[in-house]
Design a protein around this nucleic acid. Structure first.
Lengths: 232, 232
DNA sequence: TCAAAAGTGTTCGGCGTACACCCATGA
DNA sequence: TCATGGGTGTACGCCGAACACTTTTGA
């Protein structure tokens, strides 16, 4: 997922099937990105591979959140049709171990061989048809992401190295689909000593330039383990 | 998992292998309970089946928390030996979709055909050897349980229908491995209007008898959805 | 009468929340 | 000079944390 301007976006892959004879569009919908796990591959590694193939990025934040294995999850007529068209056994059982990842999409081009991939704002996705049980998976991903973000500052995965407090605030507002008071938000951030105020400021903006901040992973890890020590 | 007196317990299955010739004990350790998923079975249903076979109980609280699929997870010599002895292919890849469940063990007998099963206090488990990557799985289960219990009153799964506030407090203390102030704990509980004070009191105890309380699922669901409505 | 657990109130500090105005910049 | 977003402080209510004694019962 990605944060551009005011939206949280998800990468979706277009699924199109055209009748070779009539030219009629039989299928035209979207799927989440995924692939089969190789026989000798870690589950995490498979998720990383899918992401790498899409984005060219290594070392991306990745979190397993859910495994779905309903025996009927491939049974919708559209999905059966699709599986046959790509020469997969339509009655095979598929278990999906689902991961979400956070990507700052600026300067990233997503591509997939023979397929169209696109960033879609998550709030718009429900209006479109997602293949298989991918709508359910996306819903679970959002719940897991919110839950994680409540307790850990993974938000920095979505931000550039240097960010402004308004960017950070907007991120939380988008993910939790709410609004926060600017002063209160900043007071809270102030208490987090792993968010470092830099000397640098924005340039070229036609308003008071914002101060940049950065996230210090070391300080965060240190005070995180402090908390753990006290509670155990 | 279960709460007896002062401990959080986990069901473990004994794994024993004796050399048929020398009589020497080749393996004597413990595993978590589990089984393969049938080809046409929901993942949840498989977990329920495992639990039913152990306890005879239906309708138990069940929560998927983690899926493990390291290609090397069966590779320890002890585990290889075991797999051969039960005629499983030791080089097969096994992916485990892991669930935890909460059981009030009073009046429950756990049994398993041809195997010894036992309740073990979780804090004692690390001293024993767990098979495969089950120690890791148990650790993840505890983290997931704590996380869940912070936000939802699943504790009632572990308690009898009627319980005292001291029992409830002890449960939280055991799961979070800490201690709470009695007065503060009771104040917090007081605010939860889904915890109902009953007329009934303990009898036959050689101290001031405690009042029984019960958990009202309907009231909880109602105020839970209220919260959700406001925040979305 | 003793032991054992139940039950009960107050104080304090910190945190979240509500709320409004001036500042720096480029156009 | 205007539009745009950046940046700041105070007051109040609630909640969590610390803390000690009386009550009821069976043995």
């Amino acid at each position: 997922m990605d944060l551009t301007f005011r939206d949280l976006n998800v990468i979706l892959v277009q699924r199109e099937l055209t009748d070779p004879i009539s030219g009629e569009k039989l299928i035209n919908d979207l799927t989440l990105a995924g692939n089969h796990v190789y026989m000798d591959e870690q589950l995490d590694a498979a998720a990383r591979r899918v992401l790498f193939d899409l984005t060219g990025l290594h070392d991306i934040f990745l979190e397993q959140f859910y495994t779905t294995g309903d025996p009927d999850r491939l049974s919708k007529p559209m999905d059966q049709l699709w599986l046959k068209s790509i020469n997969k056994n339509p009655s095979e059982r598929v278990v999906s171990v689902c991961y979400y990842s956070l990507i700052n999409s600026i300067n990233i081009t997503i591509t997939k061989k023979d397929r169209v991939v696109l960033w879609v704002p998550v709030q718009d996705v429900k209006n479109q048809e997602l293949a298989f049980d991918h709508a359910k998976i996306l819903e679970n991903a959002l719940l897991a992401l919110r839950n994680k973000l409540k307790h850990e500052p993974i938000s920095f995965e979505l931000l550039p190295e240097k960010f402004t407090l308004s960017q950070l605030q907007r991120l939380y507002e988008v993910v939790f689909n709410t609004e926060y008071d600017k002063r209160n938000f900043r007071k809270k951030i102030n208490k987090m000593n792993y968010i470092i105020k830099l000397e640098e400021k924005q340039v070229g903006v036609s308003h008071k330039p914002a101060t940049y901040f950065s996230f210090d992973r070391n300080i965060y890890e240190a005070c995180k383990s402090e908390i753990l020590n006290f509670s155990s």
